[in-house]
Write a protein that binds this DNA or RNA. Structure first.
Lengths: 250, 250
DNA sequence: GATTTAAAGTGTCATAATAACAATATGTTT
DNA sequence: AAACATATTGTTATTATGACACTTTAAATC
C-alpha cells in the first residue's frame, strides 16, 4: 500500500520524465561561486557521496519557471531571484556513461529516462543569509573543478557559456552585485567572469555611457583608503533606453 | 486490441510528455519563409483545420537532437541540416487558453500535459526539391502572421528572436544561402531577417574582413545585367580564426 | 599632525571602426 | 549603338577603442 501511494504521488504530482536543474551563480570576495549540494546514494552496504546542482521534477500543474523558482526557494531561501532556462539535456545514456566509475549506477540503468531543463540563476551573495542555505549545500568556487554527478559537469559548462553570452547583451551583472556598488566591484566581477582584465580608465569611459548606471551621493564605508562612490542600476531607465544594438563588451 | 497496441506503442516507443517542435526557416526570392503544416482535427461532426509547426514526440532512446533530425527528414526530406534548440515551452495551460476559440479543444483539457522543446532550423531553399516536402506542409512568409495552433505563435516569436540573436554571433547566414552566392544576396538576407537596410559600400567593407568568406573565380549566370562575383563560406577557416569577440552586426 | 598606505579618480593621443554619401563599370537586351 | 540593370569602388567626418601614468583622498600609523 505504501508503494501504491508513492506511485500515485509521482504520477499525479510530478512529471517523472522532466526535471529542472539550477546552476546558481553567486559572487563574493572576488570569486564567482556556484551552489552545489551533496547527494548520498545508499547502495548495497555502502553510501556513495556525490555533488550535483539542485534540481527537482516538474510538478504537473507547474510551469518550468515555477519549478525553478521553487528549487531556488528551497535551496537558498530566496525568492524573486533571476533565473533563465538555457538548455535542455536529453542524453538517454547519461547514466550509462558513468557505468564504469560508479557501482551504484548499474542497477539504475533501466530507470526511466529523465530529460532535464537547465536553468542558470544569479544571486547577490551579500543578500544571502547562510542559515537559509540548506544543510547539504555549499558555495563552491566556480572555477575549481569538482566531480559532479550525472551530466552535471556538462550542465555547468553550458551554463557558464550561456551566462557569458548573455552578460554581453543584458545588464545581468546587476543581479550579482549588491544594490549599491562601486565601479571597481563591477569591473572585478566582469574580469572574474570573463577571466580577463580591463584598463580602469577605458572601463570607466565605457560604463559612463550607460544612462541607467546611477552615481549616488554616497560613498563606500569601512575601507581604509579613499572610499569609492557608490552606484546603482536603474531598471526603468534601462528598459526605456535599451536598444538591441548596445552591447556590454569591453 | 487496436487500442492496446496503440497505447503500448506510445508508452514504449515515445515519451508522451515530451515533444519537439521545429521552426524551419528558409530563404527564397528575398523572402524569409517558414514551414507550416496543416493539421486536421476531427471533432464531433466537424473537421477543424489548423496550422502548426512540424513536431513529434521524443522516442525513448533518442536524444532530442535526433528527434529534431527525424522531424526535419520526414517533413523536408533533407538530412544534415542546421538545427538548434532554443527554448522549452511548458505552460500547463496552453490548451485552456484557447478554450473559448476552439470547440475541439474542450474535451482535450484533461489530456496529459506536454512539454515542448523548440528547435529552429535553417535550410537553403534552392536545395529543397518541393516534391520532398510532405503534402500538408507549405512554406509561408515568416512575416505574414497566421493563426497557429496551441502556443505555436509564441514558439515562432521566440524562434525568430533567437535566430536574430544567434545570427549576430555565428555565421548562420550561410546555412540559408546556396553553396555559392553573391554579396548582394547575402546582404538582402540580413536585411530581410533584421528588417532593415544597409549601405552597400559599408556592408561590403565589413564582410571583406571575414577571412572565411571566399571570393570565387566564378560569376553569376542567367541574369540580364552585369553578373556578380560568387562567394562561398569556408567553414574550416572560420573555425580556425573565430574569436569570441567578433560579431556580425552592421 | 605628519607620514604612510591603498585604492579612487582622471586625460591624451594614435589608431581603428563607423556612417553618410555618388559616380563609374560591365554585362545583357533591344 | 543605346538603354537597362545591377555590380563595384573611395573619401571624409565622426566616433570608438586601446595603450598609457599621475594626482587625489580618506584611513591608519607613527
Amino acid at each position: 500500500m505504501e508503494e501504491d501511494t508513492s506511485n500515485i504521488n509521482i504520477t499525479i504530482e510530478t512529471i517523472p520524465t522532466i526535471s529542472v536543474d539550477c546552476v546558481i551563480f553567486g559572487y563574493d570576495a572576488n570569486e564567482l561561486k556556484v551552489l552545489v549540494r551533496r547527494e548520498t546514494v545508499p547502495f548495497e552496504d555502502k553510501v556513495f557521496l556525490e555533488w550535483k546542482f539542485p534540481g527537482n521534477h516538474v510538478r504537473r500543474d507547474e510551469d518550468i519557471d515555477a519549478t525553478a523558482s521553487r528549487i531556488l526557494k528551497e535551496q537558498t531561501g530566496l525568492e524573486n531571484i533571476f533565473a533563465k532556462q538555457f538548455m535542455v539535456f536529453s542524453d538517454p545514456n547519461r547514466l550509462k556513461r558513468r557505468k564504469q566509475d560508479y557501482e551504484w549506477v548499474k542497477p539504475r540503468l533501466n530507470d526511466d529516462r529523465v530529460i532535464t531543463v537547465g536553468f542558470y540563476s544569479l544571486v547577490n551573495l551579500s543578500d544571502v543569509d547562510n542559515s537559509t542555505i540548506i544543510e547539504d549545500a555549499k558555495w563552491a568556487n566556480a572555477y575549481e573543478s569538482m566531480i559532479l554527478m550525472f551530466d552535471h559537469s556538462e550542465i555547468f559548462d553550458e551554463a557558464l557559456k550561456k551566462l557569458r553570452y548573455d552578460l554581453l547583451h543584458e545588464p545581468l551583472v546587476f543581479e550579482l552585485l549588491p544594490e549599491k556598488f562601486t565601479l571597481t566591484q563591477m569591473q572585478k566581477l566582469y574580469e572574474v567572469i570573463f577571466n580577463t582584465t580591463y584598463d580602469k580608465r577605458n572601463y570607466r569611459r565605457k560604463v559612463n555611457k550607460m544612462a541607467y548606471l546611477i552615481p549616488l551621493d554616497e560613498i563606500q564605508t569601512g575601507v581604509s583608503h579613499k572610499p569609492a562612490r557608490l552606484y546603482s542600476f536603474d531598471r526603468e531607465i534601462y528598459e526605456k533606453t535599451r536598444t538591441e544594438r548596445f552591447d556590454f563588451r569591453m
